[in-house]
């Protein structure tokens, strides 16, 4: 009689051990969310989360994604996130996409957050996972290619992934191939970034995220306006302006655009103006 109880006790212990590990992982998400200053990196390894999902991977993935969104929402502004917060955020997104690599929402969110987070390689590897599984979908290899071009200036890989994207069904292939060349130019990159952001805004229901995207969009649009003006200036005077105010003085611009992040626009004397303006602003965010 006693041995029976012993046996069931052992099994219960074993199961509660599993559950305890599981709870710890879930709970750590919440403690993280409450105490933003905690050390990062307590989420259990992906494979462990997967193993302990017991056939409810899809649902777990949904919840991890929601946790990631909630984590973002717990900051007043996207720009408030520190490096370790981004680390945490990508950890959640990574786990979510590991559990359900087809799931679009975390992939899109990761791609959207590549601007403020500057976690380029992490984002790209997450997006590659999506591209691998959603083999019918041209958008994710396209995002990968774009990110290679735009952020890492890795034109070789960028072209490779854009080509992959162009071969998918329903992809605007001609557009994508010509894009590869367009993206090597500064103006092409900017307008592409704007297109992606606009798409993002159109498909986002979450108000706070939408606001953040819009801010970023305004920032990019300002850059486009400035760069067009600078190009015009070059045409008129044969050289680049050295100060932003010259654009006002020469009546090319009626009003200087105001940066949503409060950055100051500057132009380098060499003519590679655009990048420096961008960098200034990115440092700010």
């Amino acid at each position: 009689m006693k041995s029976k109880y012993l046996k069931s006790l052992l099994i219960i212990l074993f199961i509660s051990f599993l559950i305890a590990l599981h709870i710890k992982e879930v709970a750590s998400i919440y403690t993280k969310r409450c105490h933003k200053n905690n050390q990062i990196g307590l989420i259990l390894p992906n494979s462990f989360i997967k193993i302990t999902s017991f056939g409810f991977k899809g649902l777990r993935s949904d919840i991890l994604y929601l946790n990631a969104v909630n984590f973002l929402m717990s900051f007043d502004q996207i720009s408030d996130l520190k490096e370790k917060d981004w680390h945490w955020f990508y950890r959640l997104i990574d786990a979510s996409t590991y559990l359900d690599p087809y799931f679009q929402d975390p992939l899109f969110l990761a791609n959207a957050m590549i601007w403020p987070s500057k976690c380029y390689n992490t984002t790209i590897s997450i997006l590659k996972r999506g591209a691998k599984f959603r083999s019918w979908d041209w958008r994710f290899p396209f995002f990968v290619g774009f990110d290679y071009f735009y952020f890492l200036k890795d034109y070789k890989n960028g072209t490779k992934w854009l080509l992959i994207a162009s071969k998918k069904r329903h992809s605007p292939s001609i557009l994508l191939v010509s894009l590869a060349s367009a993206l090597t130019t500064r103006a092409g990159q900017l307008s592409m970034g704007i297109t992606i952001l606009k798409n993002q805004i159109a498909h986002t229901k979450n108000k706070k995220l939408k606001k953040a995207y819009k801010k970023r969009l305004r920032c990019l649009e300002n850059l486009v306006i400035l760069e067009r003006a600078i190009a015009k200036y070059k045409k008129l005077f044969g050289h680049y302006p050295s100060k932003i105010s010259q654009l006002l003085n020469s009546h090319i611009l009626k009003k200087l655009p105001h940066d949503p992040f409060g950055a100051i626009y500057k132009i380098t004397p060499k003519g590679h103006v655009k990048r420096i303006i961008l960098k200034k602003i990115k440092n700010k965010t």
């Binding site: 899809g58 649902l59 995220l209």
Partner: peptide, 17 residues
């Protein structure tokens, strides 16, 4: 409806789970 894009996916996830 808490999700942005894959609403169908989440819906079926919840139903089957």
């Amino acid at each position: 409806n808490l999700f942005a894009r894959d609403i169908g996916k989440v819906c079926i996830d919840v139903a089957l789970s």
